[in-house]
Design a binder for these strands. Structure first.
Lengths: 340, 340
DNA sequence: TTGAAAGCGCTAACAA
DNA sequence: TTGTTAGCGCTTTCAA
């Protein structure tokens, strides 16, 4: 394997200067047609591919954006990432993706790496909303967009979903069905989605003058097992709730699994609504009602915001997108033969 | 925002040469303790972060590996990616991930971009097993590992699952249950998994001297809708099959959805086994029997192979890993009240 | 329309 | 133990 051809090899073969080759490969014009053809031929003959590394070195931009997600295995994120990637590719940007597994420490490392690599921007769903690590990015002048979870201490563009309203609608719907004992499986209260979905629950209860029964408020961690355990705990109560609201997709899966294992009959003994749609929703009988979010659109908007910041270097005010989730009423939220 | 500090700024502040700073940040030793401390202090005071771009430029390596998958939204891939990323991070490598949406053209572009960026290696599940684009990578001396789908025209390390045996076992199990009319929903026959899973089906039938009934062989494209349509088609047959084998996870979802919509009773009128486990499997009644693969392990092994090639530049023979899938017999493959 | 040349920030060979 | 210096491959002035 001879070493890779460089711009200089091309220049030599085409018998022009490297400046001319550079003009051609960057499509800058001002090159005579015949010269251009010579250069193209040389590039082709040599199989020359320009080094993005050298280019970035000189231009101080990499056309790369970094994406940080807490858990790539949670299907929500691949959908968001697909939206980001799609739009990014259209604009000539490429993505580096890393998953933190919800570890703030890993997240800090990733941020460091991204800076070393000179990413032009970062889109992240942070594992630590109160973290200081975003400061690093700001110091370097690297634009950041937060998705799904807010960044507390810094002025950062944000794409969120109206979690409060989403869970409010869900719980309200449950109340309208006549439920009075409605449980919630919460997400971590130090995350925006975890907290806000709980707030929406409280808001709905308050509106109907229901007081909060702490036996029905179970803490989870957005992972499947915590949903499973929450359902077990609820089932073990003497006075069981007649409806359950789950704060995310994975916990929904765990919860429904537990319901089945416990033979706690969905739609007969207990109603259910979950935040975020899941594959299993339409396979379980009765079908699961859910609060659903436009995942791909979230990614697209996030890239859009980031791109604007990368391009106009000027001052832009902090922008916050708040998308509306949609309550998809299927079957699990209805009364059926439930005796309340 | 003043421009970012460079190694030179650090050197000046610490009152040493840039070579010394370089030694410190690369942990090369041979620097006096006190000098080292001065350098660290300067780095800290300046908030210096070394440029990976400049470093890569000089070292001719990026510590980056590119990952290409056909569909990031198919849950199989995030699991594989998680395995790759985990091992990669341990070794100080980082990943660029791109999804081709099964488009060979997009895949070629991505390969080109990866080369421009100087990735140290590539792990891919190709959208075009007969493509010439891998040649580009080989010409550049960039190691490649193929996952899940083979690369035909080149000598490439490969991590596959024993698809033939997996579907063979599944179909054999169906036959043992007394089924004689077993349908298959095929994947694209120009992909290794699509073809091999069909071969396993044929092998099982042949072993029991069953001949292939072409009405029961439906072509799909690994996407959900094709699974749905396949089930519809089978249902419309005068002489319906009594068992269905689906060649992948997404088609399983589509197929089972159709079964429900058609009220074609799973476990009573028709048995089912799918290739790859899916979330819905244990939520549907009867629970779905599936052929399951060690997804994270596949990713880990792929990185392992790639890493070996990156490190020992020498000649290594082509290696092929063949992992064994496991038949998870749950409920949908049993007879129950099926009248054959 | 073209070319010469100055770096971009770093590593590593060599010298001291 | 430390410093000097020559590039890595490219873009981009400036001059011709």
């Amino acid at each position: 394997m001879e070493s890779k051809p460089t711009i200089e090899d091309v220049a030599k073969l085409a018998d022009v200067s490297i400046a001319t080759v550079s003009r051609v490969i960057n499509n800058q014009g001002g090159v005579k047609r015949t010269t251009e053809e010579k250069v193209f031929k040389a590039i082709y003959d040599l199989g020359y591919i320009r080094s993005a590394v050298a280019r970035s070195m000189k231009r101080k931009e990499t056309n790369t954006i970094g994406i940080i997600v807490p858990d790539i295995k949670n299907p929500f994120f691949p959908h968001v990432v697909a939206g980001i990637e799609q739009k990014a590719r259209e604009k000539g940007y490429y993505t580096i993706l890393s998953s933190t597994n919800e570890s703030p420490k890993v997240e800090e490392e990733i941020v460091q790496i991204f800076i070393e690599r000179g990413v032009d921007g970062v889109i992240l769903t942070t594992a630590n909303e109160n973290g200081e690590h975003i400061k690093l990015l700001q110091e370097q002048g690297i634009p950041v967009v937060a998705v799904d979870r807010a960044i507390k201490r810094f002025e950062i563009d944000t794409v969120l979903v109206d979690n409060i309203n989403g869970s409010y609608q869900a719980v309200q719907h449950l109340i309208m069905q006549g439920h009075q004992k409605i449980a919630i499986i919460c997400g971590p209260q130090d995350t925006t989605p975890g907290l806000e979905r709980f707030l929406g629950y409280k808001k709905a209860l308050a509106e109907f003058n229901f007081s909060i029964d702490h036996r029905y408020v179970i803490q989870g961690d957005f992972m499947e097992t915590s949903g499973y355990r929450a359902a077990q705990e609820l089932f073990s109560l003497e006075d069981r709730p007649t409806a359950i609201f789950s704060s995310n997709n994975l916990m929904t899966i765990g919860c429904v699994k537990a319901l089945m294992d416990l033979d706690w009959k969905l739609g007969e003994e207990v109603s259910f609504i979950g935040f975020d749609d899941v594959d299993i929703a339409t396979f379980v009988r009765p079908k699961l009602s859910v609060v659903s979010r436009p995942m791909t659109a979230i990614g697209e908007i996030a890239f859009q915001l980031l791109h604007e910041r990368i391009e106009f270097k000027g001052d832009l005010p902090k922008r916050q997108y708040l998308l509306s989730p949609e309550l998809k009423i299927r079957e699990s939220s209805f009364l059926n033969k439930i005796s309340l």
